Computed example of a mutant assay.
Amino acid sequence: MVSLALYYESLCPYSANFIVNYLDKLFEDDELLSIVDLYLSPWGNAKIRGNDTFVCQHGPYECLLNTVEACAIHAWPKLEDHFPFVYCVERLVYERKYPEWESCFEELGLDPKTISECYTGGYGDELELEYAAETNALQPPHKYVPWVVVDGQPLYEDYEDFITYICKAYKGTATPEACSKPSGYSIQRSKAKAKPIPPVCYRDTIISTLLEKIKSEISLWMQ
């Protein structure tokens, strides 16, 4: 098995984009999914304050959704049980409809009671502090989210090509068909056709805000 870990935060639009448009590809290929041990860590760039309280990069609603997703992962530990819920919530984030996140219970036929008791009763905060400890102990430290790690090695800006690295790390004999595809799965890319660096939410809010401002100025200039 190849370990694949995603460190993310719920309201980072680039985390949502990765989960909805990239990570979901794993679940479209049973053969590929069978060689992957996927781990989700919904903490990201949040920071611990005094008395075991914490603040999130995108505000209180992000703290709520991080905690809700942590509760779902705890309540439904099997990947096939919790990922659809996380995907549903992040799809609504991607569509800018995240205040409607509770609709995911009805959509997936899930009982909201367990999750509600978890995040309103304080246990969700305990789970989040555990994710905080794991995230803050990463070596090398994470610089931004989504932070994707394959077999202990961060992929940095190449995170969208995570399938390439899964295939490279896999040591089994029955190679998934996806790993035999010549295009789109090669780590070697010509400089002439190098992909642009995918956007991220930086750990340092000042850097993140400055880069977003620069991107906005460039966009206006190009218009």
Score class of each variant (00 low, 15 high):
4 L>I: 09
5 A>W: 05
8 Y>P: 11
9 E>T: 15
11 L>A: 15
13 P>R: 12
13 P>Q: 09
14 Y>A: 04
15 S>A: 13
19 I>Y: 10
20 V>W: 14
24 D>C: 00
25 K>F: 00
29 D>R: 08
29 D>I: 04
34 S>F: 05
34 S>C: 07
36 V>D: 07
37 D>P: 04
37 D>H: 14
38 L>I: 05
38 L>A: 01
39 Y>A: 12
43 W>V: 10
44 G>I: 10
47 K>C: 00
48 I>E: 06
48 I>K: 15
51 N>W: 12
52 D>M: 01
58 H>K: 14
62 E>I: 10
63 C>E: 03
67 T>I: 14
75 A>C: 07
75 A>V: 05
78 K>G: 10
81 D>P: 05
82 H>K: 03
83 F>K: 06
86 V>Y: 02
86 V>I: 14
90 E>A: 03
90 E>K: 08
93 V>A: 09
94 Y>R: 05
95 E>H: 03
97 K>P: 02
99 P>K: 01
100 E>Q: 15
104 C>T: 11
107 E>P: 00
108 L>D: 04
108 L>C: 08
110 L>H: 02
111 D>A: 01
113 K>V: 11
114 T>F: 02
116 S>K: 04
118 C>A: 12
120 T>R: 03
121 G>N: 13
121 G>L: 09
128 E>R: 12
129 L>C: 04
132 A>E: 06
133 A>M: 00
135 T>M: 05
135 T>A: 15
136 N>W: 14
137 A>R: 14
139 Q>I: 11
140 P>R: 08
143 K>G: 07
146 P>F: 03
148 V>N: 08
155 L>A: 09
158 D>M: 01
159 Y>I: 02
160 E>M: 15
166 I>C: 08
167 C>S: 10
167 C>L: 11
170 Y>N: 04
173 T>G: 01
180 S>Q: 04
182 P>V: 13
187 I>M: 02
188 Q>P: 04
195 K>L: 12
195 K>G: 09
198 P>G: 06
200 V>G: 01
208 S>P: 00
208 S>C: 07
210 L>E: 10
211 L>Y: 11
216 S>D: 12
218 I>A: 10
221 W>N: 07
223 Q>A: 12
